[in-house]
């Protein structure tokens, strides 16, 4: 059976549309990132939840990737987010930013644009006023990396 041009193009399009396997180079949190997270946490326990990261799942350009991090918190005097820490585990230096807020913020949400060296997991950790630490993460696929060109 000969394939028609239409069938061939259809197959290519399907192939492109199917989910790309996320590169697992930095499967486990890199040692650098683990050390950076440890510096924030100390001996406290890190729990998953409350923190959400809003980022594109595929970014064309690693030089400027939008990031919004928000924490589920009433932001009152007795129950608020003290700080949010963002880490990019496969960057040459995993620290991205530390944001310090308080009850005056009203809403625990910060947006910025970040550089990503390669496809990787972005981790955000929130320190709450009761001393607990919560984390959230997301995977971003980069098609053009930061730090290389020029």
């Amino acid at each position: 059976m000969r394939l028609t041009r239409r069938q061939v193009i259809g197959a290519i399009v399907l192939g492109l549309a199917s989910p790309l396997p996320v590169r697992r180079a930095a499967q486990a949190t890199s040692e650098n990132a683990a050390a950076a997270i440890k510096a924030i946490l100390g001996d406290a326990v890190l729990r998953e939840g409350k923190v959400s990261l809003d980022m594109p799942s595929i970014a064309e350009n690693g030089n400027s990737v939008p990031l919004t991090v928000s924490v589920d918190s009433p932001m009152t005097g007795t129950d608020h987010v003290r700080s949010i820490h963002v880490f990019a585990e496969a960057n040459p230096r995993p620290n991205v930013a530390h944001f310090h807020l308080g009850p005056r913020a009203g809403r625990a949400q910060v947006s910025t644009r970040i550089r990503l060296f390669t496809s990787q997991k972005i981790i955000a950790i929130a320190a709450l006023s009761d001393g607990s630490f919560w984390s959230g993460s997301t995977e971003v696929v980069i098609t053009l990396a930061a730090c290389i060109e020029e």
């Binding site: 030089n63 400027s64 230096r93 991205v96 913020a105 809403r107 947006s111 910025t112 970040i114 550089r115």
Partner: peptide, 14 residues
């Protein structure tokens, strides 16, 4: 840190 993109942009609430 250097992982913040050029022309740093920050949005927050109060």
């Amino acid at each position: 840190f250097p992982a913040i993109a050029a022309n740093p942009f920050l949005t927050f609430f109060t």
